[in-house]
Amino acid sequence: MKPFDYRTATDMGTAVAEVSGRPDARFVAGGTNLVDHLKLGVAEPDLLVDITAVTSAAVEDRDGGLWIGAGVRNSDLAADRRVRERYPVLAQALLSGASGQLRNMATTGGNPLQRTRCVYFQDVTTPCNKRVPGSGCSAIGGYTRYHAILGASEHCVATHPSDMAVALSALDAKVHVLTPEGERSFPFVDLHRLPGEKPDQDTRLQHGDLITAIELPPSPFAQQSRYRKVRDRASYAFALVSVAAALDVADGIVRDVRIALGGVAHTPWRAYKAEQVLRGQPAEVASYRLAADAEMADARALDGIDGGNGFKIPLVTRTLVATLRDLT
């Protein structure tokens, strides 16, 4: 680990100025991802600006929705009555992630910004385009069990590991950001980007942009939502695949639907195609299957040692169908 300076931020504006002014400075919130990366040598900052004291730790009712401060811990958010009642998909996603201890540390701002769990990304002795642009991708032809089936590029096939982010994608959440130029907000689904030629960039944030809050819009049917995570052990494991879904059914017909997938792409994957196919269709398994197939039409399995990841394609289909069926 390289030595670094550490400062406790005094306010958000100063924090943004400090980090944006220094290319190797970083924010630290819960530290559960960043401190891990410091030890692995994956991140080598020269300054850490601790933002836990200045980002809001409050969940507030705003305009019929919820406004979640970036400093709210994952455990507090999952325990929040309003989240449990009005956005169960989010509470479930949070509770399916990591462990009790980690959720007590992890923050609303840090969670969506955690980086891929690709084993090669985390191992500085192996080539990885995300860590060292241009060095190559060790995962292609390697261990791909946790890797992408959608939206990957020849430069990177990693997946985004967050559960919370999948739920937020399905909920049409908004991200509030403080930049050196001022405040800005945009849809959560635009936060992450596909790897393309620049897999080193996970998101569309600029260096020094600070997430200040996540906003959940009011939703008449988020109450009818569910998060289903499929993993290799019963707890304390990242998703192989996951499905976040909210379903609005009237008279046996799908009036509206939101679907996002986890463990399948470089971003939480909003399943627009499946949603499109479903609207107006009978709320039954046959429709769900068509929707899943539509979304999976573009899926590409990766070969690799230990069997590759082709199993994920049917797994997503089956999990998506089951999740929608259970919501009906």
Binding site: R117, V119, Y120, Q122, D123, T125, T126, S138, G141, G142, Y143, D232, R233, A234, S235, Y236, A237, F238, I305, D306
Partner: peptide, 30 residues
């Protein structure tokens, strides 16, 4: 039976899932 599998990558020559997040052992819930 269910979890343990050290994945030896023939290209790199080492076990790539070399930690407790990737080399799963049973948890209390299992």
């Amino acid at each position: 039976a269910l979890h343990e599998n050290s994945v030896l990558d023939p290209a790199t020559g080492h076990v790539v899932n070399h930690d407790f997040a990737e080399y799963h052992i049973a948890t209390c819930a299992d």
